[in-house]
């Protein structure tokens, strides 16, 4: 994608994030920002701390140091519940769907933070609760149309092939009408055709709804094609940050990916 698109102010800024588990350091002094409306890729070799970074952003992990500024509010850490209700949705590297439930129900859970009728109404399943349920069902049907998964609406997702499950997971995230969408390796393990479909969906989401997207991806072709800016992590540290072209030409990135022989002289 050309670098001439206009983006807004940062929707998210992470500053000097340090995260360790016991003695193992996962992230060290990582800072970057994500601008409103862009597709931001996070790349790096295995174990570089990419998934940890996403987990920090949506509140699964609490960093020991650093701060996170989301939509103008600065915090030490996020909480999953708060992240979800303030517009951050995500998918997982190892698909985390509700396997016993149908595609439709899975995507409906994405509406969770949008539904407000209280427990009593729901227990009775009367009047307002029923109406609310139907309204949200409408929205979910749109998501299903968008992702072209009408045929599997009622299928329990545990029975779906891998590529479809990934798509349903994206649907669940979209159902929340996120402002910031975090995708953890959305195309991992897919064949070429499935990858192309997924790329198209990601770009369409970004284009049509103006959703800001942060994604982790290993396929460099995909990253170069769809992302506006790329941040590169290696061993928990940021080693590069810029447009795909800049990053591709960066000496440290090439070293991190291809390895480098150092002679001890």
């Amino acid at each position: 994608m050309e670098g001439d698109r206009k983006f807004g102010d940062p929707i998210l800024e992470v500053q000097d994030i340090n995260l360790s588990f016991g003695g193992v350091t996962a992230l060290e002094g990582v800072s970057f920002d994500i601008l409103n409306g862009e597709v931001r890729a996070i790349i790096g070799p295995n174990g570089a701390g990419k998934s940890s970074m996403l987990n920090v952003i949506n509140g699964f992990y609490h960093p020991q140091q650093g701060q996170i500024t989301y939509k103008g509010k600065t915090r030490r850490q996020m909480r999953p519940h708060h992240a979800a209700s303030s517009g951050i949705a995500r998918t997982f590297q190892n698909i985390a769907l509700f396997k016993g439930m149908s595609t439709l129900d899975n995507i409906m859970t994405g509406r969770n933070t949008k539904m407000r009728k209280n427990l009593l109404w729901q227990a009775l399943y009367l009047g307002p609760a029923k109406r609310e349920e139907l309204e949200h069902r409408d929205f979910v049907e749109h998501v299903i149309d968008f992702l072209e998964i009408q045929a599997i609406r009622k299928t329990p997702v545990g029975k779906l092939p891998y590529g479809m499950q990934k798509r349903v997971e994206l649907g669940r995230a979209l159902a929340a009408e996120p402002e910031l969408l975090l995708l953890d390796e959305p195309m991992a393990g897919m064949n070429l055709e499935e990858k192309e479909d997924m790329c198209r969906f990601v770009l369409d989401v970004n284009d049509q709804f103006g959703t800001t997207i942060a994604l982790i991806e290993h396929d460099m072709g995909v990253v170069m094609d769809i992302s506006d800016r790329v941040v590169v992590l290696d061993y928990g540290k940021k080693i590069a940050d810029g447009t795909p072209e800049e990053v591709r030409a960066d000496q440290r990135v090439i070293e991190a990916y291809l390895g480098v022989t150092r002679d001890d002289n």
């Binding site: 519940h81 997982f92 769907l97 509700f98 409906m108 933070t113 729901q122």
Partner: peptide, 24 residues
Amino acid sequence: RTRIGRALRAVADDHQAALSVGIS
């Protein structure tokens, strides 16, 4: 049929995914 019911089933299936859609 209800949101809470679905949330209950969601929690039963996958804690982390349930958290990510804002279920407490």
